[in-house]
Amino acid sequence: MTQVSQVWITIAAAQIPVLAVLLALGMAAKIRTVTNNSEPGGMSGLGPAVLVAEKWRAPAMLGCAAGEAFLLGGLMLTGHPFFRWGAVAFFAVSAYVLWELRRRRPDAGCGCFGDVSSIPVGARSLARTVVLTAMAAGTVWVGPAPGWSVLAGISWIEGLAMAGGLLLVAALSPEIEEAAARIRYRVPCEQRRMDPETALNRLRASAAWQAHMRFLASPDPVDSWRELCWRFFAYPGRGPEGNRLEVVFAVHLIGRRPAVRVALVDAEGRPVAVEPVTVGHSRPEPVSARSQPRSGRMLTRARHAARHNSALYGSLASPLESRIEG
């Protein structure tokens, strides 16, 4: 055997751990997608599940994960050619399925790494499967050494080849951008589910609550509703002269000590001006979303919140405006 062919075989052997890493990631992501699929139809945009009837989508995903686990075990623990050829067949069939998926459901993601692979199948995903097929085909000519022994006695050529293989696969993986975007992304507060009980607890811990408690005729709200990033609580109340009022609190939904606004409203819906009780022992909390930040991190958050509020509520002159305007 010439030296060049020996180098090629070394490079091919180094791809066994690369294939194993890909199979392990794919298997774990698919199982996670199926187990986290609380919303019915959550896999409606993922291949190859999308190619089968809805009731078979989870079994198809799990079947795929089982196949990957089988190949992963075989490649890493044995050097039997059955698993090498099995990996070639698996990736070749995957390439065909992706091609078919792109033709039949151009809106569906490949599902290769579960719900992270939800972006439509493109040339990169296809090229990655073809590259993996080629890597798997290369391992057929490697001796009967199991994957773990390649890792155990790794040489610098194998290390470089492994890193090169991983880099090539990473370059062909649109999921990396998707995963990074998901890590960066937080659902805007106006679209986030928020527990009303949490807002009520934060209201009751606020200085505004303490200052206006004496106007409340009942400790339980008669109505509660949410608009954008605010939750409102309306209480029956009595004014200083004993007149009937409604006390309405607006609690911002972001932060442990959120902004709290309060108004006393008469039967005609007009705000009533009263002097609130000053509460000495309670910690002051911001009364608007534009409170002064105390640290650099808070400053960044405050700037982000200001930009968000500016986009959401319009002019900075009335950042609390929450009427939807055209």
Binding site: F232, V248, A250, A263, G269, R270, S322
Partner: peptide, 11 residues
């Protein structure tokens, strides 16, 4: 609700 929310938020 709209009147109460408007009063609370000063709009």
């Amino acid at each position: 609700r709209h009147a109460l929310a408007a009063a609370a938020l000063g709009r």
